[in-house]
Every structure is written in C-alpha cells, then in structure tokens.
Design a protein around this nucleic acid. Structure first.
Length: 855
RNA sequence: GCCCGAGUGGCGGAAUUGGUAGACGCGCUAGAUUUAGGAUCUAGUAUCUUACGGUGUGGGGGUUCGACUCCCCCCUUGGGCACCA
C-alpha cells in the first residue's frame, strides 16, 4: 500500500456516522407532511438471549435499502423497530432462576438494540415499541374487549398438551417426540378451559381479501388452504327405526346413489344411540382406543383404516336404500358435521375402507375416456346407476340433486371451512392478562339490570364457563380500567391445576367488582359500600404471543398515544405499510391473525384500511458455510458482531444482499464477504485518488455510458428487490473508473449516491470528503439519461441455423439489407453456407441475423 | 399421497418480452510489485480437441429460423399440507 494512501477505517467511520444520524435526527419520520409517505416494515424480532443472528439483518437491510432509496427519491419515510417481547423463553428462564421476565426482557432488548444500531439502519428510534409495556398492551387488551363485545370471544374446553409429571400445559414447541422437552416426561391431550376467538366468522372475508394483496403466491396459497373453503351439500339421512336424523356434509352430492354406508366420528354425539346392544362393547373399546391416539398417531396410521359397525342403518333420502352406519376415526368430529356418507366407488378413503370390510361398491359415474374397471374414480363424467339422473353430466347432476333435496327438505347446498377458531389463551405468566372477570349468575343478571359501561359492553350472548359444578359469567373490564397489569408473583411455576401462575395470587385474583363502573379492589380489603360491588374472580389465562404482533404496525404510527390505539389522522396519512418483510414461517399464523384483527378493527370503524399488509416479501434463509441450517449444536453460527468487527457493518450489509436473490435460501461464505469488502476498499481508494477527479462535466463517452447504465440498472434492480444485481452493476462501474485515467467528480459522486442505501456509512464519509453536504440521503437520487445508452455503433451477431458464426459493427441506423449482405460476405459465415440453400433469413433489429440453411 | 418452488462452471450466482449462456463475486493458474507475508495490479479460467471444430443450463422427447427461457414425461432437491368427506 502506498504510504500516502488513506486506510479504509470502517470502525471509526461507522461510529462517526451513526452518531451523526442520531444527533441530526436524520431518519425522523414526519407525521404530517407534504411529501408522499413510504412505510417500510420489518417483522419485529423476539429479543432472545442469544442475540441477533445473521438472518435477522437480511430482511432489515432489504427494508433499509428501500427506506433510504425512497428518502432520496423524495418520500417521507417511516422505518421503525420494536420488540415482540412476551413469550416462553423469558418465562422458562424465570422458572429456572427466579429472575422476573421483565428483567430478562430488558437485558435482551438492550442487547438487540445495540446490535441493530451497530448495523446503521435508517430507523426512527423515537417510535420504538415493546409489546410488554403496559402502555402498549393496554391497547392489545382494548382490542380484545372489542372482540368480546361483538361476540367474537367465548370460552370452551379445548384439547391441549398436558404433562402430568410437570403438572403443566405445554406449548407445541415444548413437546419433542411425544415427550416433554424439559425432563422428557410423557404428555397427553387433555381438555382445558380456553378463551377462544371466533376467527371462523371471518373465514369468507379473509379468503376474499387475499385477492387484493401483493403477496408471494405460495403464501396466499397457504392461507387459502388453511381457510380451506369447499362447496357441497348437507344431507339428512333418517336413522332406520328411529326419529333421529344423521346429518352429513359432502362435496359430491352427485354421488349420492353410490353411498353404500355411512361413518360417524368416534366423538359423534349420536353415536351412543346408534349402537345396538350387541355392539356396545366393541364400539366402546374402539372409541376408547381412538381417544387415546394423539394427532401424530392418527396421521402415522393414515393408510390403515379401522372401524366398527354400529348395528344401525340409515335411509338414503334419494333412493330409500338402507345402508349400514359405521364408526371410524378417519372421520373427524371437527370438520363438517362429524359424519359422512361413504361413496367407495368415488373416494379413495371410502374405497379402502369398503375393501377392507367387504362393503358393496357401486359405481355411479363413468368416464368415457378412462378404464371402466378402475376404481375409485374421483373425476368428472356421466351419471349411471342413479335412477332418473342417469346420463346427466356429474356437474349438472350435482346442481339438480341439491335442488331436489331442498325441495324435499332433506338437504341443502352448504359451504364448509377447515379453519378452526383460535385458541387465544395460555396458561402462562408472561403474557397480556385477559381483562375479564367472572361472576355468579345472580350478579350477572344484576349487571344486565344496572345501567353503566359494563352493561353496554356485554356481548349479546353471555360468555359462560363451568367450574366447581357452577356456571360462571364473564364480565369485561371497561377501557378506563386498562391496562390490567401483570401482578408480581413469588413463583413462575404454573399453578399445577392447569391454570397459570396468576391463579395462585389470591390478592390479585379475588376482587370486589363494581358492576356499574368496572372498578375493582382486592378482596383482602373490606367490601366497599354500595349495592353494585360484587364478589368476582379474575380470568387467569394470558394472551398468546400472537396478540401483540397482530396490530404493532399501527402503534408505530402513534407510539405514545394514551387516548387512542392510533390517532385516526395519523392512520389516514401513513395507511398500511408499503413494504413488509419477514420469514416465510409466519405465512399462516401471524399473517392470518393480524389480518383478522385488522379487518375486525376496520369493520368497527377504528381503521380506514381493511388489510394490514398490502405488499409482503419473505427473505430466504441464510445457511451456515457448510450448507446446513445455522445452529448452536452444529457450531456453524455466524454472529453479526464478529463480522462487523472484522469487516464493518457496510460490508455485512452489502454481502447479505450480494449472496443471491433475496428470497433464495443461500449459504454464508467468509471468502465472499472479503470480496465485497474489497469492492468497498476500491471505492474508498478511487474517492481518495483526487488526481483522477476533474471538476468539469463527464466528457468520456464510454464512462458516461457505463455510469448511466449503472444508474438505470441499479434503480430498476432496487425497485424489483434484486439487490445482488444492483451490487454487480456498481462493481462494473468502479472497475471501469479504476481503469480510466480520469473522470468527473460528479461521476464518482453519483456512484456514492447509488451505493448509499447499501453501504451508508462509507457513502456518507466519502460524500462529505468530496465536498458533498451531509446527509447523502437528502440529495435527489440520480436519474439515468437513457439517450446516452444508445451507442453510435452497434454489434450485430451473425448466426447460421441459430449458431454464432460471426459478427460485425454497423452504424446504429443501418438497414437490414446492408447487414444481410455483410453477413453473407463474412468468410466464416460463407464456409457454413457452402453448398447449402438459404431457406429463411431472420433479422432481429439491433441484435442479430440468422440464416436458416438446408442441404 | 397431494400442492407449490428450484436444478446453469470448482463455488455463490447473471442472462425483462424466446435472440451472442456463464455478467459480477469467490476460488484457482501465471506474472508484476514487495526483504517476506499481506495488500494491490495485469493476464487467464465451462468442457472436449494440437488445430479446424464439436459439446454444453438435471435427464428424455417436442414446438421454433433460434430454447436456460415455451409444452409433455421423468429424476433430484427445498418448502407447505396431510384421512377436511
């Protein structure tokens, strides 16, 4: 290295500019502005104890590039950051060490913030949010109360993982291979009281809303499949010799004549009445076995059908035929009506079952094109063995049968969804308390008779729950009593009864509650005067981690508002994020739940927009250098801190984008980051090479062309999120400048502007060294002059039969005939034409000629 | 099993609507500079062939003057769903 050459001292450069941006408030977003807005949103992280890993910055860098680019383009940009900080790990750590989760969370947040700041993002830190702050979760609770008021929350027994040894409910991720993660104890499915949100009421809206979203197709498909809409019919079958009717759902009412048996799920309410006396024992043992099977077992045995004949028969409403009713666990109580008509000829599962148990198989549809003998056949075709419907097309038959069933009042067209209601409660400490209290029937009636905020906030239908042989009634807290804060506890262990640790804190749990105002005090205290004070018990469940992340994109718009979730004017200005980036693992849960809440708040008139995230992108996973997923146990984890120490934040940012397409899964490479680091050093060196800089306008035609090609390509690539291509193009430009004897100062300054979103610290430093006024993002983005990209001379390629045989230079306005004769005159081309006949001459203007020859 | 996505040099990857395959980076080879190393620079680098030329984008077929790109079948691989009636 030459003595006089300045070192690229990234450590001090990056520190300097991070301080500058903070001091000058460069990235503060204005709430009302004449400028158009641009809102770039990242899926906010869970601040784990492990700190940031190399995958986090990938998405953040992408959104940051857009944020900085848009700022240069004149937009009022919002790029915020926050913490999704409720969750299991902090609670587990608390159980182990007794450290309050808020302390653990604070430490982790501080570490995450430090790490994120060290990468130099254009974040407005004044808008930082944390889902565990009472000022935040107050509004999470507020939204819950709205849902409650509209009848979209209820309480029901739902199966959860229960570990008898730990006396605790376990989350799915705490169950590993059928054993508890902690201690490897056996676990079982057990029904426990849960608060449930009626997301199914929004199934249709959530499905339809997908059409308007600019999301990856695969994510839309996943949500669509998750909602699982199907159209068909509900048909009633009379139970033979009884007044009972068995209702089934089918998507193929056209195959009704082919129904040769029926199946009810083991949990079906009618089953007990259906079983004839001599079958009782057999059915009982079968349903008991089925109940013990976990979901996993049932899937493992997917191929092996089992079942028992109940001894009862039903009457097929279309042809009065008597068909047997079976019980089998391949029918699920949770879908449709929990009972099916089985058509073995046209359904694979029914076919398998019928084969195994020797049940007749009747074909009712033929396909003229396929093999008659091959069953089951689930396609379309012409009706046979179907009485008056014979000869009809199956699709027409479907419509006609539904109409006929409706006319006879034994069936109707119906729509079904796979989507289930959302279990919204956790038996945990570290989550938002659910702002409900439970009272007796008597006090509930009294509430309904007492004018006040509580009465006005009740749902039409009372939410009840049975406990200790008594029915309890849910009352909401009024908004004025929010936030309902988490109480301090001695011990973070679950209560042991399947309830959360909150159930053990009697001074918090047991309260006097004012039916009129919703105020409460602990039952430790004497009962206040007044008839409206009643004895009540708080809900002990807390909300799932999803709750806080369902609406956080709104809170960034107005993070400290204590009167409103978000000021309507601010919501109107910022609208929904223009860009949302995060991992594909959230394709259904978070992204569906957030859509549900957002749509609900829109229906309530709280929000202007129905959908939360109009444009969504998933960054691909970054693998370890060995091509495996990064994991502590494999030892291939790369820490951003280490990379920043060795190469600087700019190199880290640049390399994460240079690795490959943003959406692709791609391995990390130590050598690769050296490559982009070398590129930055080259830029640094060229900027310091002031002897090469000229104060005049760029006059070198070739340099002008490369520069404007670069401006054009980088701009297009940034808009299309093809950041790897943008970086390649900047490399081409710097390589060109390096070889040039001299170039205009403006040329290299333009390059710095293009580079600024990617490597902001270095760009700011060199920009100011070259006399530019900071910050570089406040200078308008360069505009490509396309007229410079048209060369005076063009190269035309000569092909014979599509193979490259030569080329020639021509003036840009050359005509076809000149090129054709030049091509034919080319010696090499001639050698391939010899003795052959030209059958076709193709000319692609500006590109090539192709001579098709024969013989 | 079903539904998507992806297969291009030694490696990561380029190649808007079908039109010069391998940009850019890594690695490697040789050279320059240097006491040496590092750093930097120059040249080369798909493959077979001494050359002419041939072959090449997972495999096989097809459409076309022309296919990484479009169509059909298959293989590999990543992801999602999983008895949904």
């Amino acid at each position: 290295m030459a003595e006089d050459e300045k070192e690229y001292d990234f450590t001090s450069i990056e520190k300097k500019w991070q301080e500058y941006w903070e001091r000058e408030k460069t990235f503060l977003a204005e709430d009302q502005s004449e400028k158009p807005k641009y809102y770039a949103l990242d899926m906010f992280p869970y601040p784990s104890g492990a700190g940031l890993h190399i995958g986090h910055p990938e998405g953040y860098v992408a959104s940051d590039i857009l944020a900085r680019y848009k700022k240069s383009c004149g937009f009022n940009v919002l790029h915020p950051m926050g913490w999704d900080a409720f969750g299991l790990p902090a609670e587990q750590y608390a159980i182990k060490t007794g450290t309050h989760p808020s302390i653990t969370t604070q430490t982790n947040v501080d570490n995450f913030r430090r790490q994120i700041k060290s990468i130099g993002f254009a974040i407005d830190w004044n808008r930082e949010i944390n889902t565990t702050n009472p000022g935040y979760y107050q509004w999470t609770q507020w939204i819950f109360l709205k849902l409650f008021q509209r009848g979209l929350a209820y309480v029901d027994e739902k199966p959860v993982w229960w570990c008898p040894n730990l006396k605790a409910v376990l989350a799915n991720e705490e169950v590993v291979e059928g054993k508890s993660e902690v201690g490897s104890h056996p676990v079982e499915r057990r029904n426990l009281r849960q608060v449930v949100l009626r997301i199914t009421a929004y199934a249709e809206k959530l499905l339809e809303g997908l059409n308007d979203l600019d999301w990856p197709d695969s994510t839309k498909r996943q949500q669509k499949a998750w909602i699982g809409r199907s159209e068909g019919a509900e048909v009633q079958f009379q139970v033979d010799g009884s007044d009972d009717k068995l209702k089934v759902y089918t998507t193929r009412p056209d195959t009704l004549f082919g129904a040769t048996y029926m199946v009810v799920a083991p949990e079906h309410p009618l089953l007990e009445k259906l079983v004839v006396e001599e079958k009782v024992e057999e059915v009982k043992s079968y349903t008991e076995t089925a109940a013990k099977k976990s979901d996993l077992d049932r899937t493992d045995l997917a191929k092996d059908k089992s079942g028992v004949f109940t001894g009862s028969y039903c009457i097929n409403p279309i042809n009065e035929e008597k068909i047997p009713v079976w019980v089998a666990d391949y029918v699920l109580i949770s879908y449709g009506t929990g009972a099916i008509m089985a058509v073995p000829a046209h359904d694979e599962r029914d076919y398998e079952f019928a084969e195994k148990f020797n049940i007749p198989i009747t074909r009712v549809i033929t396909n003229p094109k396929s093999d008659e003998s091959k069953l089951p056949y689930s396609g379309q075709g012409t009706m046979v063995n179907s009485g008056e419907y014979n000869g009809l097309d199956a699709n027409d038959c479907k419509v006609k049968i539904i109409a006929d069933l409706e006319a006879k009042s034994v069936g109707k067209g119906a729509v079904n969804y796979k989507l289930r209601d959302w279990i919204f409660s956790r038996q945990r400490y570290w989550g938002e308390p659910i702002p409900l209290v439970w009272v007796s029937l008597e006090d509930f009636k009294k509430t309904k008779a007492t004018e006040g905020i509580i009465k006005d906030s009740l749902p039409q239908e009372a939410v009840t729950s049975d406990k200790d042989g008594k029915t309890w009634y849910a009352l909401p807290l009024p908004a004025s009593e929010l936030p309902l804060k988490l109480p301090e506890v001695e011990n973070y262990q679950p209560a042991g009864t399947g309830e959360s640790p909150l159930a053990t804190i009697t001074e918090w749990l047991d309260i006097w509650f004012d039916l009129e105002s919703g105020r409460s005090i602990s039952r430790d205290q004497p009962k206040p005067d007044g008839d409206n004070w009643v004895s009540a018990t708080r809900e002990t469940n807390t909300m799932p981690q999803w709750a806080g992340s369902c609406w956080y994109h709104l809170r960034y718009l107005d993070p400290t508002n204590s009167e409103n979730l978000v000021d309507p004017q601010k919501e109107a200005y910022w609208g929904s994020p223009d860009f949302y980036i995060g991992g594909a693992e959230h394709a259904v849960l978070h992204l569906l739940y957030a859509r549900f809440w957002h749509r609900f708040l829109h229906d309530e008139g709280v929000l202007k927009n129905p959908e939360p995230y109009k444009k969504l992108f998933h960054q691909g996973l970054i693998l370890g250098e060995d091509g495996n997923k990064m994991s502590k146990s494999v030892g291939n984890v790369v820490s951003p801190d280490v990379v920043i120490d060795a190469y600087g934040a700019d190199s880290l940012r640049l390399f994460e984008m240079f690795l490959g397409p943003l959406e692709a899964v791609k391995p990390w490479s130590e050598k690769g980051i050296e490559g982009v680091h070398r590129f930055l050093r080259k830029v640094h060196r060229e900027c310091n090479n002031i002897d090469k800089h000229k104060d005049t306008e760029e006059s070198n035609k070739e340099t002008l062309k490369v520069l404007h090609e670069t401006i054009l390509k980088v701009t297009e690539a940034v808009e299309d999120l093809r950041f790897n291509v943008a970086i390649s193009q900047m490399m081409i430009l710097i390589n060109h400048l390096q070889k040039a004897e001299s170039y205009s100062l403006d040329t290299i300054k333009s390059l710095l502007q293009l580079l600024a979103p990617f490597a902001p610290h270095l760009a700011e430093e060199l920009w100011s060294e070259l006399g530019g006024k900071p910050s570089i993002v406040n200078h308008p983005w360069p505009v490509a002059r396309k007229e410079l990209l048209v060369a005076d001379e063009i190269t035309i390629v000569f092909q014979v039969n599509g193979k490259l045989r030569g080329q020639g230079q021509f003036p840009k306005d050359v005509d076809k005939d000149t090129i054709l004769s030049a091509a034919k005159a080319d010696l090499k081309v001639q050698s391939f034409l010899e003795g052959k006949e030209i059958v076709k001459e193709i000319y692609v203007p500006g590109k090539l000629v192709n001579l098709a020859v024969k013989g």
